[in-house]
Design a protein around this nucleic acid. Structure first.
Lengths: 222, 222
DNA sequence: CCAAAAGTGTTATGTTTACACCCATGT
DNA sequence: ACATGGGTGTAAACATAACACTTTTGG
């Protein structure tokens, strides 16, 4: 079907992913370097145009894989960006997604046919990005902070479970606060379950391994 | 600019508005009756296709005005709907908006060149709607409940301020709960300010007129 | 045996809930 | 004068925040 009114035409959807990790207490985000115009040579969030035969989230997952080699099975949308001039050549509506994984567990592709580099950047060291990606990233950071205290989004960071000390480190890194250990445990124990396993995380003493309680997707920490 | 890859073409944006009101303790939503295919003759949320030269929200405001005659200056987005088959003829991404006004203060157009009727429907009496609008409405209702306790969205319902009893009625209607009058006042007084005026709302005794505190957009009731 | 990290309880403070009577006014 | 709705305070329950010592174990 063709739309008659030209005002309905020439619209596309950008899918943009802010993929975070935490390394040794530092929050980082994955950026890729563009090899094509527009914004050739600039760093950007992994992103691209959605196909008309895929769900938006699937487009985001596909683009993330194409631009970084990282294959996830879920991302969560956080906001739509629709400024008229956000893309220079064509009216593109941007849909932003956030995800969080442990960077140690993935291998990132440094080059693809549209990117010449890829790396994890600390949040106080973000270069000027392509498109409106600096703005998108800022919203993504705020939304990540909100989601870790209201949802179990961190389970993608800990596919094999976590000890309470390492979970606390991730919370403290992302929220940029210090949390009392005993109070943290008290709150968390409402939404996580003991796996009955123990592991060595940092110390010499073994720590109990927990996972998020599947029945409690909506949580409320702090 | 033309996009080369056909997978990038043939995408449009639907803007869909769930406009709520509360009448005598009953929450209602505005529906319009379609005169054109697809879904000819069916009731629907006021909606239409966004133009490629307008912001999504402006498209929603424009469509609301075209389909109902109601002219607002703001709406808040709540979710994107992207099922591949949500529109039968063309890939359309739906962007949902919610708003709330006092139906007494507006005159709705019963017919337009695309609608044959328009009316406020109580939420327990919603017919089968066009497209995926029943699903969209259900999400909108949940989001409205969330927004009235976390934002000052109700200020559009009370452009001239409100008394605490009438504000409480709106909260109780939308949330479908009873609230203790004294506790309600205590909470609300954190986010509203006295206008130093008094009006008669229902009773014979005058009641103080309040408005939302502009400095407190993010609130937390309950 | 000691350094380094894991684990644990109690008190104080703040927040939320439950609850009942007086006041003002139009009829 | 009375019916109708507006306005107000306090105590109990609950949730959050502050705080320090003991346990385990690898080196």
């Amino acid at each position: 079907m063709e739309l008659k009114n030209p005002l309905y035409k020439n619209i596309g959807i950008h899918v943009i992913t802010a993929l975070f990790t935490v390394e040794k207490g530092t929050t980082k985000v994955l950026l890729v370097r563009r090899t094509n115009d527009p914004f050739k040579g600039m760093w950007a969030l992994p992103s691209g145009a959605m196909y008309n035969n895929e769900l938006i989230k699937d487009g985001a997952l596909r683009e993330l894989k194409e631009k970084t080699g990282i294959e996830l099975d879920d991302l969560t949308p956080f906001r739509t960006f629709d400024a008229l001039d956000r893309s220079p050549l064509y009216r593109m509506i941007g849909v932003g997604y956030i995800g969080i994984i442990d960077s140690q567990t993935v291998e990132i592709l440094k080059t693809t046919n549209k990117t010449s580099n890829a790396d994890w950047f600390t949040l106080d060291n973000i270069p000027k990005l392509a498109y409106d990606h600096n703005e998108i990233l800022n919203y993504a950071i705020e939304k990540l902070k909100e989601r870790i205290i209201t949802t179990d989004i961190l389970k993608s960071f800990f596919p094999n479970g976590f000890t309470l000390p390492e979970l606390q480190t991730v919370y403290e890194s992302i929220l940029n606060i210090k949390i009392d250990r005993r109070n943290f445990r008290k709150k968390m124990l409402n939404v996580i379950v003991d796996t009955k396993k123990e592991v060595n995380y940092v110390g010499k003493k073994k720590a109990k391994l927990y996972k998020f309680d599947k029945k409690k997707k909506d949580i409320s920490i702090f």
